[in-house]
């Protein structure tokens, strides 16, 4: 069957035999966007987190048939070196990653959190960020999430001024 959606601002249409194929493998192996990671295949670790219509979802357990007509954002669509998203900027400032493998999932979960709660408390972070990091970068991630919230606020403010 054919499934059409928008990913990182681009319209895509994929031909797929099994409509229950997890979105993760369509994104990684068909669309060749490797920023979204496989960790567990059971929505337990969050390494595969991306956004569908602005909501953070765990794509390893999300059938591709559910994204027909929807907007997907992966880490590659969040920002790039020239134009980093506030979350990515904060991750750079705090030098968060170690092995780095789980970090895309955390950054996507954080970006979704900041859309809902622009200035999260420590408790908000504890309750909403439930991904797994084996290197133990949580301590720096927490600092980076607070920093991203600051950057986000100033970015929104400057955008408002400029418009």
């Amino acid at each position: 069957m054919n499934i059409s959606f928008n990913i990182n601002g681009k319209s895509e249409s994929v031909e797929i035999t099994d409509e229950n194929t997890p979105l993760l493998w369509v994104v990684r192996d068909i669309l060749d966007l490797k920023g979204t990671k496989f960790g567990c295949g059971k929505a337990a670790c969050g390494a595969c987190t991306l956004h569908v219509d602005g909501e953070a979802i765990r794509s390893c357990s999300y059938p591709v048939k559910l994204v027909e007509g929807k907007m997907i954002t992966t880490l590659e669509g969040l920002g790039d070196a020239e134009n980093p998203h506030p979350v990515q900027q904060a991750w750079i400032e705090e030098i968060v990653p170690q092995c780095g493998y789980c970090q895309p999932g955390f950054m996507m979960a954080t970006a979704a959190l900041l859309n809902k709660i622009p200035n999260p408390t420590d408790e908000d972070i504890d309750n909403n960020i439930s991904n797994v990091c084996r290197c133990g970068t949580y301590y720096r991630m927490r600092k980076a999430i607070h920093r991203a919230a600051e950057l986000n606020v100033s970015e929104v403010a400057s955008e408002t001024q400029n418009s």
Partner: peptide, 21 residues
Amino acid sequence: IPRVDLKDKVFGSPIYGMDAA
């Protein structure tokens, strides 16, 4: 000094074994 692999890891470069193609 900031990690030399920082940007690859923040912007999702395909650098891991599982990304190899």
